[in-house]
Design a binder for these strands. Structure first.
Length: 578
RNA sequence: CGGGGCGUAGCGCAGUUUGGUUAGCGCGCUUGGUUCGGGACCAAGAGGUCGGCAGUUCGAAUCUGCCCGCCCCGACCA
């Protein structure tokens, strides 16, 4: 490709309001352009890189038995109503009506279609296992797109769906994906870790997320350096310090004016926060009803909303309003389950830290008053006792006890064991060897292509621009013709361009009449892995200058050896990725 | 949805506090010339509903109201 004809240009300055390096550089280098919030056009350079990522995905999916297909983005709402996601997913699911006034959705994932296809295509256990996938547009009307391609509303995803006769088969395909994903991300040049994760809106029984560790990420990960425990904070467990055994002291009402939070309370009573009980009120959306949830954790801990939502079977949690709290007799700032007049309407969930810690200060449900020395189950209790607390840095690893640390990560891929979550409601069943009807056991596995590209850009750049790994780079070679006024140089550059192209090398040829500084700066910005420079100087030294993007090392290669040198250098650079 | 910020030429910005000729600067773009190994120089140009609508005023980029859009933080979320 000649740069003089390339659609899309580089920008000297970063557009205002861009924080993430990948966002800035992809814009500046002419890869992407914003159209609206979370909506981007992918210019020719980006398109080439995306295609390379997609082809790697195809190869690795095919290698584990995947069959590529394509399913529609616009879908009738019926299949979503059947599986319940029409009702259970909020405004994130884009809905519209077609001209005949029928409910439609823009798919944010394709489980429904796959399950629907299974109804007609899978009738016998002999037709299992199967693995299908596609690389398709998804639309999720995210409330807050951010950081360029890291979080967008419309994006391309490789999503595969495994179909099995039983759990054992699912386990096999899940494991195959688990390993294939590491191969894929390694080929992308992306360093990732897999963490155990929440199943979220996908449902099912187990899941992992593939995380690129970076401060631009919005997931918090809990990691153990000692034993390798790794989990999304949403589900991460930890060993809670065991409180020293104490005699249960009598409940004692004390004045605590103005102590509306744990810090204040602990100070006024002269006890550590771990000797208090903290209450959080949430409204749980349980499908048909909304219920007030009173979650109690020890004062030094914090409620984990994902864990709490699971504990109460809520599809959604929101903070309760003051009126909702007062309606059951609780007083915000001075609340506890003790003495609530309307306990029947309240779902009390206790973190196990509360039941195992004696003599905690707790609210008296009266403005300005608390109790000292409350004890479970003497003063209040609940049948819902479980872990609903958030991990903090330094907490003990659940499997080995070593201190945990927290990191931020971007979720570039995920794998879910769906089980029969979709096949059952969809009626996707088959006859097993004994002639019994069984639901198909499904798994789903996603990789966001654009987000992966952004993460590769995050991982591979420097202060001058992008530094693409060979496998992802839009071109393999950036040929700079520093012609000046020299017709001989121009002719040589042109000739070399033709030769490399003819040999199948992907060349971005800077044939523009620009000063050298501009040409070099653009080359660095775009980040093609290998730069060739043809100039009067290089020719007088006997050839073409060759320089990898990520090193300062320059080499002059005679024209007759150029193709071999380029191939060798690309092979060397490919081997060094990550 | 809540909090904060921003919206002036393709991009980056000044001007708005204190209303007053023809709205400016840098980059980029066009033409001519010079230059040619790290974002050159000279000259001449093109390019603006100052986000939109309504209002106040003799007069609005500037003041007021409503609306729209974008960015950041939070809520939310695979």
């Amino acid at each position: 490709m000649r740069m003089s004809g390339l659609f899309g240009s580089t920008l000297r300055e970063a557009p205002a309001g861009t924080e993430a390096a990948s966002h800035q550089l992809l814009l500046r280098a002419g890869f992407i352009r914003p159209l609206g919030q979370g909506l981007f056009s992918y210019l020719p350079l980006a398109r080439r890189s995306l295609t390379k990522l997609e082809n790697i995905l195809r190869e690795e999916m095919n290698a584990i038995g995947g069959q590529e297909m394509t399913m529609p983005v616009a879908q009738p709402a019926e299949i979503w109503k059947t599986t319940g996601r029409w009702a259970s997913i909020g405004p994130e699911l884009a809905r519209f009506r077609d001209r005949r006034d029928r409910d439609m959705v823009l798919a944010l994932s394709h489980e429904e279609v796959v399950a629907d296809l299974c109804r007609t295509e899978i009738r016998s256990y002999r037709q299992l296992p199967r693995l299908v996938y596609h690389i398709q547009t998804k639309f999720r009307d995210d409330p807050r797109p951010r950081a360029g391609l890291i979080r967008v509303r419309e994006f391309t995803m490789k999503d595969s769906y495994s179909l099995d006769a039983d759990e054992e088969g699912l386990e096999k395909q899940y494991q195959a994906h688990y390993e294939a994903y590491f191969r894929i991300f390694r080929r992308f040049g992306l360093e990732v870790i897999a963490v155990g994760s929440d199943v979220g809106m996908m449902g099912g029984s187990g899941a992992h997320e593939y995380m690129y560790l970076s401060p631009v990420g919005e997931d918090t990960l809990v990691l153990c350096a000692a034993c390798g425990y790794a989990a999304n904070r949403q589900i991460a467990r930890f060993r809670k310090p065991v409180a020293a055994a104490e005699e249960a002291l009598p409940l004692q009402r004390v004045a605590t004016p103005g102590a509306r939070n744990i810090q204040e309370l602990a100070e006024q009573l002269g006890v550590p926060p771990s000797k208090t009980a903290k209450v959080v009120f949430m409204m749980a959306d349980q499908g048909d009803v909304e219920r007030l949830v009173l979650a109690v954790v020890r004062g030094d801990l914090e409620v984990n909303e994902t864990k709490l939502a699971h504990a109460v079977g809520a599809r959604d949690l929101r903070p309760a309003t003051e009126a909702e709290i007062r309606a059951v007799g609780a007083v915000p700032g001075y609340a506890s389950p003790i003495g609530l007049h309307d306990l029947d309407n309240v779902l009390v969930v206790l973190d196990d830290s509360v039941t195992s810690s004696p003599n905690l200060a707790a609210g008296a449900n009266e403005e300005g008053w608390h109790y000292r020395d409350s004890n479970v189950p003497r003063d209040y209790t609940s049948e819902h006792v479980m872990d609903i607390a958030n991990v903090h840095a330094g907490d003990a690893c659940p499997s080995c006890g070593a201190p945990l640390h927290l990191e931020r990560g971007v979720e570039v891929g995920n794998i879910f064991k769906l089980g029969t979550r979709y096949s059952k409601p969809a009626g996707a069943s088959f006859l097993d060897a004994a002639g019994n009807e069984q639901p198909v056991v499904m798994g789903s596995y996603g990789i966001g292509v654009g987000r992966a590209l952004a993460c590769v850009a995050e991982q591979h750049h420097d202060d001058r621009g992008l530094c693409w790994p060979v496998a992802v780079a839009p071109y393999q070679v950036h040929l700079v013709g520093l012609r000046g006024s020299d017709a001989v140089v121009a002719e040589a550059a042109e000739r070399i361009y033709q030769q490399l192209e003819a040999a199948g090398v992907e060349v971005l040829y800077d044939d523009r009449d620009e000063p050298p500084g501009v040409q070099f700066a653009d080359a660095d910005l775009i980040g093609v892995p290998l730069r060739l420079t043809v100039s009067g100087r290089s020719l007088s030294k006997g050839g073409i200058e060759l320089k990898p993007r990520t090193s300062a090392e320059l080499r002059i290669v005679p024209e007759v050896e150029l193709l071999a040198a380029v191939r060798a250098e690309l092979a060397r650079l490919s081997a060094n990725t990550i």
